[in-house]
Simulated assay, not measured.
Amino acid sequence: MDFTTKIPIEKSNNPISYDSKIIALGSCFAENMAEKFSYFKFQNEVNPFGIIFNPVSIENLVSRVINNQKFTEDDVFFHNDLWHCYEVHSELSHPDKETFLTNLNLIIQQSNNLITQSTHVIITYGTSWVYRNKSSQKIVANCHKVPQSQFDKEILSVEVIEKSIQNTMDLIKKINPNCAFIFTISPVRHVKDGFVENQRSKAHLITAMHEIINYQLSIINYFPSYELMMDELRDYRFYAEDMLHPSQTAIDYIWICFFENYIEEENHALMGEICSIQKALLHRPFNPDSKEHQLFLLSVKEKIDKLQYQFPYIRF
């Protein structure tokens, strides 16, 4: 008997290998997947400007990066003892304005290089709900705990999202016409917006995404993270304690579905070797000074040296 329905996942037409260079942008689920890439020692970077949830804010940052549009004093503000920018995550906020601007503009330069060199761009959209600053009339990526009265909340239409996704792709292709795109919708439930509102939000993202995919299949893959969580993992035991985010078990399951279909099969054996080394490095012996443990460490070191000879960028 089967107690779940399996979601069919098409093999990627641009699979990832250890030679690939990956940049991931978007919601906190993008961070979850990036942790897996890092664990298996792929060449990847994630969210240079921090976690960003909505398509328009991702597009705005990509536009800055591609056009090398520097942040200025007009783009930052002081609140709760820190300098912030509405376009980036609060993890980048800083007590010194000049340092903050320098850091932001350095990230623009670094991100331009990353996108230029990338073979795969992975974008995870989290929500269609956005906050528009009343004074500037601009959509913000992060409210930075500024009073709610300074923003209007709205939901992006399917048409606006579709245009934003296309703009993001077009911008990236200006400096990297050969990169492949992988899009996914975050399985995290944004129920602070409301239960019905969360479903509306995800529906807008999915509809817009598939409008784009339908006529650009050659360079785009859609990975069904949201669908896997909602269907194959249709049970609260697969959620974290907050009942909103996927549990580690769910993240591991979704990752397995991803690597089985999006990473070249020739690389699976190498992933197994790296996983073996990672587990060995976490091993805690009863007697660290024993001859047996010293031989174990030597064996692990030999495996690492052999891998690093073949793949110099791999570091443990």
Rank of each mutant, 00 (worst) to 15 (best):
T5V: 13
I9H: 07
N13T: 10
N14S: 06
P15S: 04
I16E: 08
I22E: 07
I23T: 13
L25M: 11
C28T: 10
A34K: 08
E35C: 06
F37R: 14
K41P: 00
N44Q: 15
E45D: 07
V46D: 02
F49V: 04
F49D: 02
F53Q: 01
N54L: 11
V56L: 12
V62N: 02
I66D: 05
K70I: 04
F71E: 11
T72C: 03
E73Y: 04
D74W: 00
F77T: 01
H79W: 14
H79D: 02
L82S: 02
Y86P: 00
Y86G: 04
H89F: 02
E91I: 05
H94C: 06
P95I: 00
E98G: 00
E98S: 11
T99V: 07
T99F: 03
I107T: 07
Q109R: 08
Q110H: 07
N113Q: 12
L114Y: 04
T116A: 09
I123Y: 04
T124G: 00
G126N: 08
W129P: 05
V130W: 03
K134L: 11
S135I: 09
S135R: 13
Q137N: 15
A141Y: 04
A141T: 04
A141K: 00
K145D: 15
V146A: 07
P147V: 12
Q148C: 04
Q148F: 14
Q150Y: 15
Q150M: 09
F151I: 09
E154Y: 15
E154C: 06
S157I: 08
V160H: 06
V160S: 07
L171S: 10
K174R: 10
I175G: 05
P177N: 14
C179G: 02
F181Y: 11
S186R: 07
P187Y: 06
P187H: 04
V188Y: 12
K192R: 14
D193N: 13
D193R: 03
G194V: 09
F195G: 03
F195W: 13
E197N: 11
A203T: 15
H204K: 12
H204V: 06
I206L: 13
M209P: 00
M209H: 01
H210Y: 08
H210W: 02
E211T: 07
E211G: 11
E211K: 14
I213Y: 14
S218M: 03
I219H: 10
P224G: 14
M230V: 08
R234V: 00
R234S: 07
Y236C: 12
Y236V: 10
R237W: 01
A240D: 15
M243L: 15
L244E: 06
L244A: 12
T249K: 14
I251K: 01
I251R: 00
D252A: 09
C257S: 11
Y262P: 09
I263Q: 01
A269T: 09
E273T: 04
E273Y: 01
C275H: 12
C275R: 10
C275M: 10
I277R: 02
Q278L: 05
L281R: 11
L281V: 03
L282K: 12
H283I: 00
H283T: 13
H283W: 09
N287Q: 08
N287A: 08
D289Y: 14
S290A: 06
S290H: 05
K291V: 07
L297S: 05
L298C: 03
V300Q: 06
K301M: 10
K301I: 03
D305Q: 09
L307W: 03
Q308W: 06
Q310A: 10
R315D: 09
